[in-house]
Each structure stands twice: as structure tokens, then as C-alpha cells.
Simulated assay, not measured.
Amino acid sequence: MTAQQPHASASDVVKIGVPVAIGAAVAIAIGVYGRLHDPTGFSVNIAGFGSPLGPKTWLTTVAFVLALVQVGSALVMYGKVRVAAPPWIGTLHRWSGRLAVLAAVPVAVHCLYALGLQTTTPRVLMHSLLGTFFFGAFVTKMLLLTRRGLPGWLLPVVGGLVFAALVGLWLTSALWVFTTIGIPA
């Protein structure tokens, strides 16, 4: 005798499939734009920094640190860390996520405008692909947050994918700069 597996209804498929499809379309659109766009090779510099590399490196690091806050606050909210969840933990989670994306957007705009999607080295290719994936996964997560009745595992998995992509972006950009070029001013 086998246990009966619950079947996903058509509405469940739509509830999950549409946000995933939109997120995938965003990732593909960013990738296609980045590949077809004629890179300018330059972008606007921010006062106080010696080159665009400085603000990109630091903004990516800020996004990475805020992503760590996201994971920590999610673990507390989902009861995976045995501490009493303070009443402001949800607010911390939402705002750290918003600020992480706010820090990442100018970096992505600069990268797409000045550099495009590049494939010159394995690190650069991985960075480009992670960037497109990050924003597609982020859009998917934001759209899934508006849905009710989702499986309990879904948002943590999608959030984990967003986090993993951002960590990969930081490793292939800011950490690479810190360890090969030095700390940019």
C-alpha cells in the first residue's frame, strides 16, 4: 500500500508558475539587454571615489551585509533560531531586504550600461549570469509574497536562491576586488 501524494491543483500551478515565469522573463530580458546593448565603457562617478569601482564594490558589500541580516532575521522569524523573536523582527527583515536591493540596483545599472553582459573570463561570465538570476529571483520572491496558501517551504527556498545569488555576486565582484586590487577609495 502506498501513501497518496497530494496533487497540485491548476490554481496552485498558476499561483506559483506565473511569478516564476515573470521572474524568468525579467532575468532573460536583463541578460538579453546586457548582451545586445553596446557598452559605453564608462559611467557616472560618485564624488569622493577615485573610480566607479569604489562605489560598486562598497554598495555590493552593503547589499551582502544586509543579505546576511535578511537570513538571520528569517531564521528568527521561522523559529529556526531558538530566541524569542522581538516584535520588530519582521520590520527589520523587510527593510534590510529593501535596502539590500536599493544598494544593488545602482551597481546593476552601472554594470549593464557601462559593461553589458560579458563572457571574457569564467569569473566575469559567472558574475553576469548571477546578476541576471538575482534580479529574476528577486522579482519572483516579491510576486510570491502577495500569494496566499503557498507551501510553507516555497518562500524560504526562493529567498535562499536570492541570497545565494547575491553571495555569488559579492564573491565574484567585491571580494575579488578586495583580494586582487585592494580596498578601493
Results as ranks from 00 to 15, higher is better:
Asn45Pro: 07
Gly23Asp: 07
Arg35Asn: 07
Ser11Phe: 05
Gln118Cys: 08
Val101Ala: 14
Gln70Ala: 13
Pro87Lys: 10
His7Ala: 14
Ala8Tyr: 04
Arg123Ser: 10
Ala47Ser: 14
Val44Phe: 15
Gly79Ser: 08
Thr121Gln: 01
Gly116Glu: 09
Ile30Ala: 09
Ala84Trp: 03
Leu75Tyr: 10
Phe49Cys: 15
Gln4Phe: 05
Phe135Tyr: 12
Gly34Ser: 09
Trp170Val: 00
Met1Gln: 14
Leu92Pro: 01
Val105Trp: 10
Lys15Phe: 11
Thr121Gly: 01
Leu143Thr: 03
Val32Lys: 06
Phe133Thr: 08
Ser11Asp: 13
Ala10Lys: 05
Thr2Asp: 13
Leu166Val: 00
Gly97Glu: 09
Lys141His: 14
Gly23Trp: 06
Arg98Ala: 12
Leu161Met: 09
Gln118His: 07
Ala185Cys: 06
Trp58Ile: 01
Ile28Pro: 04
Ala185His: 11
Pro106Ser: 15
Gly136Thr: 08
Thr91Asn: 13
Gly54Ile: 01
Thr121Phe: 06
Ala24Pro: 07
Arg82Leu: 12
Ser96Asn: 09
Tyr113Asn: 11
Pro19Met: 05
Val158Pro: 03
Gln4Arg: 12
His7Phe: 05
Ala21Phe: 11
Tyr113Thr: 13
Pro122Ala: 03
Ser173Leu: 02
Ala47Arg: 15
Asn45Leu: 12
Pro184Phe: 13
Val26Asp: 04
Gly160Ser: 02
Leu166Ala: 11
Gly160Tyr: 07
Gly31Asp: 13
Gln70Arg: 06
Met77Gln: 14
Tyr33Ile: 12
Phe134Asn: 03
Leu130Met: 14
Ala103Pro: 03
Phe135Trp: 11
Ser128Pro: 14
Leu154Phe: 07
Leu143Asp: 07
Pro106Gln: 06
Val20Trp: 12
Gly31Thr: 04
Leu154Tyr: 04
Arg82Pro: 01
Pro184Ile: 11
Ala103Phe: 09
Pro151Lys: 14
Gly136Gln: 06
Ser11Arg: 10
Trp58Glu: 05
His127Ser: 00
Pro39Gly: 10
Trp170Thr: 00
Arg98Pro: 03
Met77Phe: 10
Leu53Ser: 14
Arg35Glu: 08
Val101Arg: 11
Val81Gln: 12
Ala67Ile: 01
Leu53Arg: 13
Val158Ser: 03
Leu68Trp: 13
Ala3Pro: 02
Leu115Met: 06
Ile89Asp: 04
